[in-house]
Structure formats: structure tokens, C-alpha cells
Design a binder for these strands. Structure first.
Length: 827
DNA sequence: CGTAGAACCATGTGG
DNA sequence: TCCACATGGTTC
């Protein structure tokens, strides 16, 4: 039997030991065996016993990835490149050429996927417009335009045999690409010949100081709108009460938005070199055709006629900016768009921001270096600007940047423009341009729209459960003190450690207690307490206390603090992860408990009766009146992708069969030896975690007497050493691909809803493989069909060999809350 | 002396 | 015992 199988059995024992469930006598189930055998041929860092069937797998891969020679050749190659991958990501520097060659191998699996996407028919064929950019060298800017028109023509021709709905969708993409094109073309002709100086104190008096649009006359206002229409680029930022802008303040919390500054870069005839060195050390940033305008966004007296007029005009300008032919550049574009949607809620609707294109340098920088999850403007300047250009007399140390008032904003916007150009270049060189344009860029506005949507929360229920939980916690605390024989802080792990190991000395009655990673002290984790619970009553009490406390503090009280007038709205972070997933906070809607938890509630009012109440945090989110939550989630998406990437016949077969039940449930039922229907959520969860653990390289080898040793320590001569780098590499490819897929679904569905004249469905949340919508009751059927269509097109576009199973769920009409979903019946 | 912040731990989510 | 997150709490 293979090592991993043995490892799995060990793991099962580990789990069952504290579940109190007898392990099945059957060594391994059918499905488990198939998964295990499939795992032996994972492309990167695969199992040690893969030699026997390794060859056939290689062959399959060869055929699949095409004729190119540069892909995975043998295990050695794979292994080396996996290591290099980590080294590269650990280093903030751009990889040198030598490294790049090596890293390509690991990413090859992923790259091949991209190739498929690009060559796929629809609906993503619009992406082909970007292909020409990728293959060109930077200096050949001029040829780009010509090249593009060829591509654009191809694109148009290709449209003919497409369904109309998809056609329109495609236009959205094409529009995006055209804007991007303008940006690129412009990049070759930076307009540095102007001699106005932003920095020498003239900012106040010269024509370059921010022009407050309120001071303009009718003619001037009209001219300004025309100028924006003709602009070559628009760079913008919000300015806050304290004078800081988006470029130098990390969080907006401290101060509210005062206005918006826009740098309008005008036409220029100059075709000078884009090289920065030619401009020497004096930063003559602005062209005479450039304009810096200021829009006030606060109106102390909204009832005054002039104020209303100004507001209206500012709204016009912003509207025009968003629908301009050229892209807008903004650092933290999502915040900008969200603020626009809030401040100009009457003038600009969420569907109207949909066809805007806002480039965000922060996201570009993150794509280039995903381990830097919060690249700041200062750092970008350091990296992409000052290295090639001496700033001369301009003072840019962080102190002055922080205190900069708005006359510096113009200068900063100029720099931001240059940085964006450099980032664009880097994105193209590194093959990230298409990803940037088709996934991350559209996501900005989607997230901005999501953040403006309010989710209703059942506040009364929340407060009620908070009280119940509070009472239960008090009881548990008292019990804990009683059995411990002293008062101590139950929530403190260090005090608990003292009680358990120094006072009660429970570690002497038990096998070795695992230590914490950093401090190397006895752990008081769930696993340890589970082991100790037969020796003393305290651990059990602590376990329940912790569970209840977590629920109360995070999901109940935590949710209450996030609420504003009965609503919540998560903040989405697009650059928060190294794998490309999204993350959410305030509240972290992705982390809200899926499964209900049972609490014993003791009532002392009428004697000693006990009652069990179940709390399901997701049911606390309630849809608006006349609306219904609808969830669409990919099933086992990571495993399906793994199957596809590894081209493993067994794993592929597993998913290609018309799967009726959840595979983790099936696995759990076979392990426990119980019928499918009797599998509990907890069982399924365990099965799932075990599979993933094994997939990503956990596990042990054992001797016949049960002596065990971690896989990582296997003799490296015969078997590959499973390092963390390898596991990260595998995880990144699989998790990242799943994230891409889900983001694609978001973008596609959003685009479809926007072009639909009737659909009003809103995206509420993304929980990694699940999309949660709020849909008008009457539109459920129509929208479900749309989602289904989109997912099918995704299947084609990605050319996955495994079918993407997408169950749709709607909530029961009675509940209207997230959490009590039921599978949507076939229409 | 009180508090702001970093480090650490534990626990939940997702795959 | 895998990877990726956010959060709340204590301790220093």
C-alpha cells in the first residue's frame, strides 16, 4: 500500500481518537483509493510512489500542454522550479532573467491554462485584443496602434456568429481594451516640454494651481467639459479634510472626503523620448495643455441655489470622466468609485460606473509582487520612479509627503501617471497584462458597487442571542473556576496554561503535549484540550467556553459593532492575498459560520429547565423586502482544477461521472461505514480537511509497528523532500486558479446584468467559491438562467476537462435570510 | 500611571 | 497534519 494511504489511515486515527468514533475496518474506500492514486501524479511535488505510473501521466501532459518543450519534463525539473518560485516571491526585487527562465516552469501549468482561455471562442474572445500587446517590445509603441486595429477588425469579424447577448457583453470588453490602447499609445509621447513648474511655490498663483470649478463661468465650464472629452489621460485622487489625499493617507477613517482633484492631461504634439533621463533633474511635469481641477464634494448648504448648481456641474464632470474614451488613473480606485456612488447617488447609478475604466497602480503593483499586499504610494515612487529619475529640489521624504497639502497633489498625480506607465510596462513584460485588464480591472468597480450595497441584519435577534450567550459564558466561567480551584481569566491562554500544567500538572498524566511554534510553551489548543478531557473536567468546560465566546464576540457582538442603522456592508480587499483571492473585513463576511451551533441555554426563571438553542450566524443576514438571496457556488472547485491540471485519469474520471452527491459526503460515509444520509456536517468537514491535508502534502509514513515519521523527513535521495515551498507552490496554482475562475464569473455576470435593461440583481458577497446575490423575487428564474449560462460559457472559456458543477440555491421564501438556502430546482 | 501597538495564540471561514 | 485569510483576546 502506498505511503500516502498509510498516512491517511494514521490521520483518520488521529481524528477519530477525539471524536470517539470507531474507525472502519475497511482499509480504504473505493473513492478514497482513487483519490489517493490520483494524488500520486500531481505535477508539482507529487507523491513519492509515482514512478510506476508517472510515465503515462507525463505523456498525457505532453499531449495536453501542446508541443512546446519548455513545460514539465521530469520530477527533478519540477522540484527545482518549485523552490525557485518561493525564492522569487520572497525577494522584493524583480526577478532577473536567469530566474525568470526557471520560474516559468512552475507557472507553466497555469500559463497553459491562460493559453486555453485566450484561444477559447467565447465569451472571452475579446481578450485576444490584448495578445498583440504582450508579444511586442516596448519601444515599438507606434506599431501598436496599427497592430491593434488589425486585432480589432478580427474581433469584429469574429462577432458575427455570436448570440446577441454575448455580443453586447463583448462590446464592453472591447471598449475597455480601446481605452487601454489609448493609454498605451500615449505612453510613447509624454508631454514634458511644458515649462510650468509645480513645485517652486508658484502653485498658488500660477495657472497650474488647482482650478476650483466653482469659480468658472458658463463658457469656461463648457470648455472644461470639452477638454476632458479630449483628454489624453485623467489622473485623479480624493482629498480629505485634513489636506491629505489618497496618495498619502493609509486609511480614510480619520477624516472625511473634502473634494476631488483631477489632473487632465491634454493633447500634445510632442513626440519626445519617453526616457526620464532626458528631463534631467528639474521636474517640469506639466504641459501647458494640462489642467488641474478641483471639485468640492461637500455642500454645507445644500439648499442654496449656487451650491446645487455646483454640485450638478461637478457631477457632470465626473460622469464625463467615467465615460471618457481614455482610462482614469487612481490610486485605490475602489474607494474613489465608492465615494462617487455615495456622494452622487442621484447623478450616477451603479450601472453607469460599469463601463468606466479606472486603472489602479496599487493593484498593478500587487499583481507584480503579490506578497506585498499593501503597496503604498511612497513605495511605488521609490521603486518605479526615483530609481530612474532624480527628484532634484522636490522634497519627497515621507514626512513631507504625509503633511503635503493639496498644492503637492498635482505633482503627485504627475508621478502617479509615470508610475502607472512603468507598471503597465512591467505587467506586459511579465505576462500579467491580460489578467490585469480582464479580471482585476473590472473587479474594482464590482467591489465598489458591492460596498455601496447595504445588507440588512436582524438586530433584535442579534441582541437576543448576545444575551443568551452572555449568560451561558458566565455559567461556564463559574464552573471553570470551581473545578480549577481558583479564579483565573478563562480567555487567557497563558493563565490557562498555568492552571493546567503548573497547578494540575496534567501533562504528567498524558502523552507529550505539543508546544507552540514561537514561544515553545505548552499549547492549549483545541487538540490538546481534547486529549486532556478525560483527565480533568476543566478542559471540556474551556472548550465549550471558547466555542461560545467565539460565536458571541465575532459573529454577534462583532457584527453589532459593524452595523450602521441596521445595515452592514463589508469592505473588500482586492490585494489582500498572495494567491489572488479576495478578502473581506468589517465584517468578514467570508468567515461567518456556515453551520449552526448548538448552545445549552439554562433558564432559572421557572426552575431548572434546560433548553437547546441553535444559532446560525448566516440567518442573521436578511434580504430586503421583495428580494431574495440567491447563491451560486462551484462544487469542489479546487479538486476539479487539481484534476485538470494534473491530467490524472483517475481523478478526472471521478469528476466526469455525473456526480449526484457531494464527494466529501460520500467519502465520509465510506470511512465511517454509514449510509450517505447519516453523514453529519462535522463528518463531511473532517473528510474534506483530510483530503486537502493529503493533497497539500501532510501525512506520515509508518512502520509496521506504528512508528511514524513526517513525510518531509523521508530520505531525499529516493524521494523528494516535501518542503514548504513545494506545498506553497501547489497551493498557489490550485487556489489561485480557483480564485481566477470565481472572479471571472463575477465579471461576466456583472457585465450581463449591467447590459440587461430589466435585471436588477446585486452581488452581495463572494465567499471564495460561492457568489451570493440579492435578486428581485420576480427575477429569480431569469437571473438563475443567466448565472447558469454564464457558468457554461466559463466552462468553454477555460476549456477545463472536468465539468464545472454549479448548484444554484435560493432561500426559502419564508425565511429570506442567508443560510437557509435550498437547492434550486431544474427549470 | 494609563494607553497604544506589536507579538502571540486560538478559532472560525474557505478550498 | 496543507494552504489562504480575519478577528478577538491577552501580554508585554
Amino acid at each position: 500500500m502506498c505511503i500516502l494511504c498509510l498516512g491517511l489511515i494514521i490521520k483518520m486515527e488521529y481524528y477519530t481518537s477525539h471524536v470517539g468514533c470507531e474507525i472502519s475496518k475497511v482499509p480504504l474506500s473505493d473513492i478514497a483509493q482513487r483519490i489517493m492514486s490520483a494524488l500520486q501524479s500531481i505535477p508539482v511535488g507529487e507523491a513519492q510512489t509515482s514512478r510506476k505510473n508517472g510515465q503515462s501521466t507525463e505523456k498525457t501532459k505532453e499531449n495536453k500542454l501542446g508541443d512546446n518543450d519548455s513545460h514539465l519534463e521530469n520530477e527533478k525539473e519540477i522540484h527545482d522550479s518549485a523552490i525557485v518560485l518561493l525564492n522569487t516571491s520572497a525577494s522584493p526585487e524583480k526577478s532577473n532573467t536567469g530566474q525568470t527562465v526557471r520560474t516559468v516552469h512552475v507557472n507553466k501549468v497555469f500559463c497553459s491554462r491562460e493559453t486555453k482561455i485566450m484561444s477559447s471562442p467565447l465569451p472571452l474572445s475579446a481578450l485576444s485584443a490584448f495578445v498583440s500587446y504582450q508579444d511586442l517590445d516596448l519601444p515599438k509603441w507606434v506599431h501598436r496602434e496599427r497592430n491593434f486595429s488589425v486585432e480589432a477588425k478580427k474581433l469584429k469579424d469574429g462577432e458575427k456568429n455570436v448570440a446577441t447577448s454575448l455580443k453586447r457583453k463583448q462590446d464592453v470588453c472591447t471598449y475597455c481594451s480601446e481605452k487601454t490602447r489609448k493609454l498605451l499609445v500615449k505612453n510613447c509621447t509624454p508631454s514634458y516640454e511644458g515649462r510650468s513648474n509645480w513645485t517652486s511655490g508658484q502653485a498658488e498663483s500660477s495657472e497650474n494651481c488647482p482650478c476650483d470649478v466653482r469659480s468658472l463661468g458658463y463658457e469656461e465650464k463648457r470648455d472644461l467639459l470639452a477638454t476632458i472629452e479630449q483628454a489624453v489621460a485623467l489622473i485623479t485622487t480624493m482629498v480629505f479634510q485634513d489636506g491629505s489625499s489618497q496618495l498619502n493617507s493609509e486609511q480614510v477613517l480619520t477624516s472625511s472626503v473634502k473634494g476631488i482633484v483631477v489632473l487632465v492631461k491634454g493633447q500634445t504634439n510632442c513626440l519626445c523620448s519617453p526616457s526620464y533621463s532626458s528631463t534631467a533633474c528639474t521636474w517640469d511635469a506639466s504641459n501647458q495643455n494640462d489642467k488641474l481641477i478641483y471639485l468640492k464634494t461637500e455642500w454645507p448648504s445644500i439648499w442654496k441655489r449656487e451650491e446645487r448648481a455646483h454640485r450638478k456641474y461637478a457631477g457632470q464632470i465626473l460622469f464625463q470622466m467615467l465615460h471618457c474614451k481614455v482610462p482614469v488613473i487612481c490610486f485605490n480606485a475602489k474607494d474613489f468609485l465608492r465615494t462617487l456612488l455615495l456622494v452622487y447617488s442621484n447623478e450616477i447609478s451603479w450601472k453607469q460606473v460599469a463601463d468606466s475604466v479606472v486603472l489602479d497602480p496599487r493593484i498593478a503593483a500587487w499583481l507584480i509582487n503579490p506578497s506585498d499586499t499593501v503597496p503604498s504610494f511612497e513605495c511605488l515612487i521609490q521603486k518605479y520612479f526615483e530609481k530612474s529619475f532624480s527628484m532634484g529640489k522636490v522634497n519627497t521624504d515621507t514626512g513631507s509627503l504625509r503633511n503635503a497639502l493639496y498644492q503637492n497633489v498635482g505633482l503627485h498625480l504627475e508621478k502617479l501617471y509615470s508610475v502607472m506607465m512603468d507598471l503597465t510596462h512591467d505587467l506586459q513584460v511579465q505576462g500579467l497584462w491580460k489578467l490585469f485588464c480582464t479580471l482585476e480591472l473590472p473587479l474594482i468597480k464590482i467591489l465598489a458597487v458591492m460596498e455601496t450595497h447595504k445588507i440588512h441584519v436582524n438586530k433584535q435577534e442579534l441582541k437576543k442571542t448576545s444575551e443568551i450567550l452572555g449568560l451561558r459564558l458566565k455559567e461556564l466561567e463559574q464552573e471553570a473556576h470551581q473545578v480549577a480551584g481558583e479564579r483565573f481569566l478563562v480567555t487567557s491562554s497563558s493563565q490557562l496554561r498555568e492552571v493546567l500544567f503548573e497547578k494540575l500538572k496534567l501533562h504528567t498524566l498524558c502523552e507529550k503535549i505539543p508546544r507552540t511554534e514561537i514561544q515553545q510553551v505548552e499549547s492549549t489548543s483545541e487538540a490538546v484540550l481534547n486529549k486532556l478531557q478525560d483527565l480533568h473536567p476543566l478542559p471540556k468546560i474551556i472548550l465549550e467556553y471558547r466555542q461560545v465566546h467565539k460565536i458571541k464576540s465575532t459573529y454577534v457582538d462583532g457584527l453589532l459593532t459593524c452595523m450602521k442603522k441596521g445595515f452592514i456592508s463589508s469592505t473588500w480587499n482586492q490585494t489582500g492575498t498572495a494567491t489572488g483571492r479576495l478578502s473581506a473585513k468589517h465584517p468578514n463576511i467570508q468567515g461567518v459560520s456556515k453551520h449552526p451551533v448548538r448552545i445549552i441555554k439554562k433558564q432559572y426563571i421557572k426552575g431548572k429547565e434546560e433548553e437547546i438553542v441553535t444559532i446560525s450566524p448566516r440567518t442573521l443576514f436578511v434580504s430586503n423586502k421583495g428580494y431574495t438571496f440567491l447563491a451560486a457556488d462551484f462544487s469542489h472547485i479546487e479538486l476539479r482544477i487539481l484534476a485538470d491540471l494534473s491530467s490524472d485519469p483517475e481523478l478526472l474520471k471521478l469528476f466526469q461521472e455525473p456526480e449526484t452527491t457531494d464527494i466529501f459526503t460520500t467519502l465520509a460515509s465510506q470511512w465511517k461505514g454509514i449510509p450517505n444520509e447519516q453523514v453529519k456536517q462535522a463528518d463531511r468537514e473532517q473528510a474534506k480537511r483530510m483530503v486537502y491535508s493529503v493533497v497539500y502534502g501532510a501525512g506520515y509514513v509508518v512502520s509496521i509497528m506504528g512508528r511514524k515519521r513526517p513525510l518531509a523527513n523521508i530520505n531525499a535521495q529516493d524521494y523528494k523532500l516535501r518542503t514548504q515551498a513545494e506545498r506553497q507552490a501547489v497551493n498557489f496554482v490550485v487556489q489561485g486558479s480557483a480564485a481566477d475562475l470565481c472572479k471571472m464569473a463575477m465579471v461576466e455576470i456583472f457585465a450581463s446584468v449591467v447590459i440587461s435593461p430589466t435585471l436588477t440583481a446585486r452581488l452581495i458577497a463572494q465567499i471564495h467559491d460561492e457568489l451570493l446575490f440579492e435578486v428581485e423575487d420576480s427575477q429569480i428564474q431569469e437571473f438563475s438562467a443567466l448565472v447558469k449560462r454564464t457558468m457554461e460559457s466559463l466552462q468553454e472559456a477555460t476549456a477545463l476537462e472536468v465539468p464545472l458543477k454549479v448548484p444554484l440555491k435560493v432561500i426559502l421564501t419564508a425565511g429570506k435570510s442567508w443560510g437557509c438556502m435550498t437547492e434550486l430546482q431544474e427549470m
